[in-house]
């Protein structure tokens, strides 16, 4: 899974504005929508679905990152947005720490293996201390793109 292909460049938001979880998810959905990932009419349904999923159990899996997601038949392949929040957001994370990086993922509902492959791709970089450290220092879309390209070029040695 190449992260550069998974993450929509137009949906990289280096400075999320809101200090509320749900509004930040909304900002990322807006970015995906403007990038053409889905039709404007679906935006509010997706927001509700993502929040409903968060209520079942936070996707703030620790280390300051969260991976909220929704499965839908409206997309044919996985697409992700990245939002950075410098002050940190309350995401009800497992380790109770604020979240500084949100990876919002839309996956095709009828292809569970694609969703699993996208999650694997995301967590193979998010479990690396170095990557998270550099991501937190990223200030621009170009900074984030460079990090993703570097991660794609140097996959984890397995």
């Amino acid at each position: 899974m190449k992260l550069r292909q998974l993450v929509m460049e137009k949906a990289i938001v280096p400075g999320l504005k809101s200090s509320k979880r749900d509004e930040c998810i909304g900002e990322l959905l807006d970015a995906l929508m403007k990038g053409g990932a889905f039709k404007p009419a679906q935006r509010d349904d997706f927001l509700k679905a993502v929040i409903k999923r968060e209520k079942k159990g936070s996707t703030g899996f620790g280390h300051g990152v969260a991976v909220p997601h929704v499965k839908t038949l409206e997309v044919k392949k996985c697409v992700a947005a990245i939002g950075l929040h410098h002050a940190g957001l309350d995401f009800n994370a497992l380790d109770r720490q604020p979240v500084h990086a949100i990876f919002l993922l839309l996956s095709p509902e009828d292809r569970p293996e694609l969703h699993l492959a996208a999650m694997e791709g995301l967590f193979s970089i998010l479990t690396q201390d170095q990557f998270r450290k550099f991501l937190r220092q990223a200030k621009t879309v170009a900074d984030v793109v460079t990090l993703l390209e570097e991660a794609d070029a140097n996959p984890l040695v397995r």
């Binding site: 899996f61 620790g62 280390h63 497992l94 569970p112 293996e113 699993l116 492959a117 999650m119 694997e120 967590f123 193979s124 998010l126 479990t127 397995r158």
Partner: peptide, 21 residues
Amino acid sequence: DNQERVDGKSVMQMLMMACTQ
């Protein structure tokens, strides 16, 4: 099909296995 071990107590590491049905 992969000898690489992950920590069963880490959600992130469990997700890195990408286990399908």
